[in-house]
Amino acid sequence: MSSADVIIIGGGIAGTSAGAEIAADASVLLLEAEPHLGYHSTGRSAAIFIRNYGNATLRALNALAVPVLENPAGIADETLLSPRGELLLASEAEMGALESYAAGAEGLDRLTAAEAVALVPILREDRITAAIYENDAQGIDVDRMLQGYARLLRSRGGRVVTDAPVTGLTRSGGLWQVTAGSDVHTAPIVINAAGAWAGQMGQLAGAVPITLTPKRRSAALLPAPDGYETERWPLFGSVAETWYAKPDAGRLMVSPADADAVEPHDAWPDDMVLAEGLHRYECAVTVPVTRVERSWAGLRTFAPDATPVVGLDRRAEGFFWLAGQGGYGVQTAPALSQIAAGLLRGEPSVGPDLLRALSPERFEGTVHP
């Protein structure tokens, strides 16, 4: 049996970054079910930082994350961001979605169809009614970010145990007993950063029931179109999120932008969903899809209001939620890790309105399908 001040369940970017921040003034044990950190959603991220992505709460978290991503002292030697840009396209039927996305957003430029094609020459101009462009959208070096946080965690005395799936959570005498494999670990605080499995961890702990829904997101890697230099292209796609594409090391990553609810598992793409998404992409460009070099899928886990769940549970003493990041987990991790550490220290790093928007208390007394 081992003990710590804080046990974190889940070694994706959420758990690893929170562990690094908390380890500055507490002993931390991180338990990861898989053989290495970042195995699931973190390792399958689209690796893009978009300031205007998500609802108002998420946009506030994005803004809080910027200073760390730009100047990741203690995590990396230089910025974790690189120039990319995001181009969102709308047909006549999608103009409502474009206006909705633009509402409350900052740093967007309205483009004509011709201007959009100038940025991405393979686009079909006749399919574009209008477009918006966010020049400040940037690529994220996700692996360097994850490994940097892991190094910081260990340098502060934190311990990482892999191949340690949690199967039991009980509390006695002011301590949680966490069963992982054949081992039992104890701590007064347990942080639930289990991603797609966070709902199951909440049930094991007897916490407030929160419906967290894993949703599959698939992607395929295509050869770059012949005769085009793609690396300077922005991420581009439908503003209605029916497909998107992103340059990736001389190739194009294309996603059907699927969001099908599934059970927690090691995700893989559905062939029909992927084919339909590639067809939507193909209809928007002048270059046919001739070959898929590789495909994969990951799970993005959402709370009912599509806002992360962060804070102590009032039903299960010492049980801390760090879950429901949806498709925003990597880009909000610097902000959420600092918020989590501040709450556990009793020194909140953000104002009460944002804390209320994130708190698990918002689900008390509610029933979700």
Rank of each mutant, 00 (worst) to 15 (best):
G15R: 00
T16V: 14
D25G: 06
P35N: 03
N55A: 12
T79R: 12
S82Q: 10
S91G: 13
E94F: 00
A97P: 02
S100K: 12
A103L: 11
A105W: 00
L108K: 04
T112L: 07
T112A: 09
E115L: 06
I128Y: 05
N135Y: 07
A137D: 08
V142T: 15
R151T: 12
L152T: 10
S155G: 02
V160P: 04
T162M: 07
A164M: 10
L169F: 07
L169I: 09
G181P: 07
A187Y: 01
A187G: 08
A196E: 06
A196W: 02
G202E: 05
L204I: 03
G206T: 10
V208L: 13
T211Q: 13
L212P: 01
R216C: 05
Y228P: 01
Y228A: 10
L235R: 10
A240C: 03
A240M: 02
E241G: 01
A245M: 11
A249N: 14
S255Y: 00
A267L: 03
W268L: 14
D271T: 08
M272V: 12
V273D: 07
A275C: 06
G277I: 04
T290H: 08
G298E: 04
V309F: 04
V309C: 12
L312P: 04
W321P: 01
A323Y: 01
G327M: 02
G327F: 00
G329M: 02
A333D: 04
S337I: 04
R345E: 14
P352Q: 08
L358V: 10
V367S: 10
